[in-house]
Every structure is written in C-alpha cells, then in structure tokens.
C-alpha cells in the first residue's frame, strides 16, 4: 500500500521526496510495514494532504488522493 501511495505522489514531488514523505508520515503515525489497513491508509493520506496543498493546491491534491485511493481499492479487490 505504501508503494502505491509513493507511486501516486512521485510524478508531482519526485520519487525520493514521495518515499521520504510517505515513510516519514507513516512513522509519525506509528504505521509499520508496507501493508496498511484501510484506516491506516486514510490516516496517512489525510496527514499528507495538507502538505501537498502547499505545492499543488487543494483541488489537485483531492484528485491525486482520489486516484491513489482508487488504485488501492482495486489492488485490494484483486486479492
């Protein structure tokens, strides 16, 4: 799941920043491991979003986060 979030953010903030931001925020939230439950994903995306607003605005952030959620839902559905 973390990898999907990183891949969703990378085109905008770059691969290194996406990974550092996702892992840093996950660590702060006490989320461990690459597999997150739905509440963990929500918490992580909610924490990342305000920071993303600064760089790309709320409208675009909402769109990116929605795409990430859709990708995660699709990945869960395949299992």
């Amino acid at each position: 799941m973390l990898e999907i979030i990183v891949r969703g953010l990378a085109p905008y903030v770059g691969g290194n920043m996406a990974r550092a931001a996702v892992e840093g925020h996950a660590h702060k939230l006490g989320l461990r491991g690459s597999e997150l439950d739905p509440s963990g994903v929500d918490a992580l995306l909610d924490t990342l979003s305000p920071g993303l607003h600064v760089f790309i605005g709320r409208e675009k952030t909402v769109q990116i986060v929605a795409e990430i959620r859709a990708t995660i839902a699709a990945a869960r559905g395949r299992r």
Binding site: A10, P11, Y12, V13, A20, F55
Partner: peptide, 9 residues
Amino acid sequence: LHFRGGRVW
C-alpha cells in the same frame, strides 16, 4: 532539490 524528478521541481 528534494523534489527532483517531480513536476514541482
């Protein structure tokens, strides 16, 4: 520089 490879950069 932390955003290298992204559109912010």
